[in-house]
Each structure stands twice: as C-alpha cells, then as structure tokens.
C-alpha cells in the first residue's frame, strides 16, 4: 500500500531521516527547518535544535518564518546572545551537524547565496551568507537540502559564500579545517554524497518514481552515480502526516499574524 506524496515532501522526509537523536543541530531557515522539526517529531525526539538567533534546544510547534520568531525562544531550553551563540557554541565546536540550504551549489558542495554575476556589478543580488560561512567550517558535518534543478545545481559558482569541499580532494584539510564539511545533499529527486577521495557529489539514492535521466536533465554538471544506488524508501504514513500537520499549523499561524 503506497501513499501519494510530492517531491518536496519526499525531500523533507529524506532530509529528516539523516538526523539522529544524538545530534546537536544548527538549523537554517526554510527547508532545513522543516526537516529538522520532522526529525524531532518522528524518530529523533531528543535531538537538540539550535537557531542562530541564540535559541538552544528549541521545540517549535509551528515552523518559524524567520530565524528569530518568538516561538523559538518560547520553546527553547535557553536563549543566549548572538555573540555567545557564534563564539561559544558554534566556534566552540559544540555543534555536530549544520543544516543548510542555498541558492546555488556546485559539484563539490560549495554554496552561493551572495551574488549571480560580478560581485561589484551583480546581475542578481542575493541576501548573502549570514551564518553560513562559519557554520560550514565549524560544525562537525554539514547536510544540505535544496531542490534539484539547473538554476541551483550549476557547473560554476560566481561566488563561494560558504566552502564545501572547495576544489575537491583534501582541500578542506589543506586549509586547516578539521571538520568533515558536507556529507550529504538531499534533493527532491535523489540523495548525493561526496566521493570518499575526490569529494565530488555522487548519487547514492534515488527517490521513488525518479529516473537517472531526470536527474541528469536537472543538474548543471555531468552527474556521477555510485556503483550501487538504492531506492529511497517512500515516506511512511507517520512521516507524511507529521510533515503535513506542521505545514498546516505553520500556514495558519503565518497568515493569522
């Protein structure tokens, strides 16, 4: 008996599954926030969610629109100042997993959220990095979630807002970083993981109903597939209902205010 689900729902649920009860997770807004809270409401009830506004151990009932919604503080174990958040908690090495989204990504999981075109004369000025440059270097590992399409998955980034695996290989280590960097990229069609030695993103799991050709058509570089990929297990009834419930509560709350 299979349940109907959308590609975006599959993406959020596949992203949620990457998290464990033991994670201390620095949560980006948007898709990462949905995934982290679905994890908390399903298989990882004791996960620690941290938002850069300073809220530690937060358990929001509705997803925040901004990184500092009152809901995050109301439901947090404690709330610290922003300098303390970035100094003691992030730079201090207390975060196991950072969860990021982005406007553009390349094959080594570097992210661009700054500009399309030249920095001084941009074609499109994007919001910028916010916490991402230091989240990417200071968290134990990074998960990234974003929809797979040619606008987002590009052959060349105009700007590296936050470094993933740089030029690939041991680039992170050469720059003195001791953290793992991006270990998984979860899209609405498939899951990528970096190749153990080259660090190029490689498809390891394909979602139900998606073909290799669809993945190739929506990615801006020639896609590498692992020798053996698995099919991503379809969402369970519990996962889907938890996700739809929190989305419905969130919509209602944001429209009301």
């Amino acid at each position: 008996m299979s349940i109907e689900f959308t590609p975006t729902e599959m993406m959020t649920i596949a992203a949620a599954r990457a998290l464990t009860n033991d994670d201390v997770c620095f949560v980006g807004i948007g898709a990462p926030s949905a995934a982290c809270n679905v994890a908390r409401l399903t298989h990882a009830p004791d996960i620690t969610l941290i938002y850069e506004s300073g809220t530690i151990g937060t358990k929001p009932d509705v997803l925040p629109l901004s990184i500092g919604d009152g809901e995050l503080c109301d439901t947090a174990l404690c709330t610290v100042s922003v300098p303390e958040m970035f100094r003691y908690w992030l730079q201090g090495g207390r975060i196991t997993t950072g969860f990021l989204g982005g406007a553009q990504i390349d094959r080594f999981a570097n992210l661009n959220t700054t500009v399309v075109g030249d920095y001084d004369k941009p074609k499109v000025r994007l919001p910028g990095g916010g916490g991402a440059p230091e989240i990417a270097s200071n968290c134990g590992q990074i998960y990234i979630t974003m929809a797979l399409n040619k606008r987002g998955f590009v052959d060349h980034l105009d700007f590296i807002t936050s470094m993933g695996h740089g030029e690939g290989g041991d680039h992170r280590a050469r720059l003195g970083m001791k953290t793992k960097g991006p270990t998984r990229v979860i899209t609405d069609m498939c899951i990528f993981e970096p190749d153990p030695s080259t660090k190029e993103l490689t498809v390891v799991s394909i979602h139900n109903g998606v073909t290799r050709a669809m993945i190739e058509d929506n990615c801006g570089w020639p896609v590498r597939f692992a020798t053996q990929q698995v099919e991503t297990p379809a969402p369970t009834e519990t996962e889907i209902s938890v996700l739809r419930d929190i989305n419905a509560r969130t919509r209602k709350a944001h429209e009301a205010a």
């Binding site: 440059p133 270097s137 590296i160 470094m163 970083m177």
Partner: peptide, 25 residues
C-alpha cells in the same frame, strides 16, 4: 559582525575569529 560588536563594546580595535575559511567574502 557579532564578534565586531563585542570587540566594540570591549573597547578593542578589532575582533578575531576562526572564520571566512575558503569563503570569497
């Protein structure tokens, strides 16, 4: 930015951090 505000409050001329590694900014 957070470090730079803190340095300002602390009457220091600059802030330092383990940051911007590999970042184009």
């Amino acid at each position: 930015m957070a470090n730079a505000y803190e340095a300002g409050a602390a009457n220091l001329p600059f802030a330092m951090l383990r940051g911007y590694i590999g970042a184009d900014l």
